[in-house]
């Protein structure tokens, strides 16, 4: 339990891993939000094919553990592609982003759908009765309110996503847990190393929570809190 030694030896290593953790989380959240919006609009559309695509996507992602998804994306699918193209290779970084983005997208889709459906029907009616088109009413009236309702679950999803990056250590992605495992394998400094890793996650997620409180406040509907 030599914290001094671990700090000196492992800190640079772990910080490098942390960078990867944050990077892969940010990229996946960005892609996932876009995926989620598309899937949500598909799900709410009247077109049965689009609806089915969205439903199957969400069903598969929610119905399987992410560790299995990561194995499928990183090992199983490349094996299939290699039958056609023997030189095909997928690196852990790309596979990690694909897996995590697909995950974020499915959950975001459900968050957005719930948010839109939580906006009172009268809001759409009032906007339409003023002469706004459906698209105008959606973008000016319904979506801003749906977004506000969705902030807490969105933040929750961000937090889960940051933590889920650790699962990607199983496909060899050099994020913080993966780096820690490597270091511990050589030095057996379990306690100090993993406490440090836990502290890293706590710090990153605490920052997220502070930012989210700020965002929530900015979107509140009272005149005092805006001025």
């Amino acid at each position: 339990m030599d914290f001094g030694r671990v700090l000196k030896e492992a800190l640079p290593l772990l910080l490098e891993g942390l960078k990867m953790t944050v990077l892969i989380a940010l990229i996946s959240i960005a892609i996932g939000i876009v995926l989620g919006l598309i899937s949500c609009l598909f799900g709410l559309s009247k077109n049965k094919v689009l609806k089915a695509i969205s439903a199957v996507y969400i069903w598969i992602i929610r119905g399987t553990p992410m560790i299995v998804q990561a194995f499928i994306v990183f090992f199983a699918i490349p094996q299939l592609i290699q039958l056609l193209n023997p030189t095909f290779k997928l690196d852990a970084f790309t596979a990690g982003i694909i897996t995590l983005s697909l995950n974020v997208g499915a959950y975001m889709s459900e968050i957005f759908r719930a948010g839109i459906q939580a906006v009172d029907k009268g809001q759409m009616e009032a906007a339409r009765s003023l002469g706004l088109s459906k698209t105008q009413a959606m973008s000016k009236i319904v979506l801003p309110q749906a977004f506000k309702i969705s902030i807490p679950p969105i933040v929750n999803q961000f937090i889960i996503t940051v933590k889920d990056t650790s699962i990607l250590s199983v496909i060899g992605l050099a994020e913080v847990v993966n780096k820690a495992k490597q270091y511990v394998g050589k030095t057996y400094q379990f306690f100090a190393t993993y406490i440090l890793v836990a502290a890293f996650y706590l710090i990153v997620i605490s920052i997220l929570m502070v930012v989210s409180k700020f965002v929530e406040k900015k979107f509140s509907y009272e005149s005092e809190s805006k001025s």
Binding site: D120, G122, Q123, A126, S129, L130, G131, P144, Q145, Y221
Partner: peptide, 17 residues
């Protein structure tokens, strides 16, 4: 046509944001 027809609802339906 709706631009020319104002409507007032029981539950106001003001835009809260």
């Amino acid at each position: 046509v709706r631009e020319n027809i104002g409507m007032v609802f029981q539950h106001f339906n003001l835009f809260p944001h």
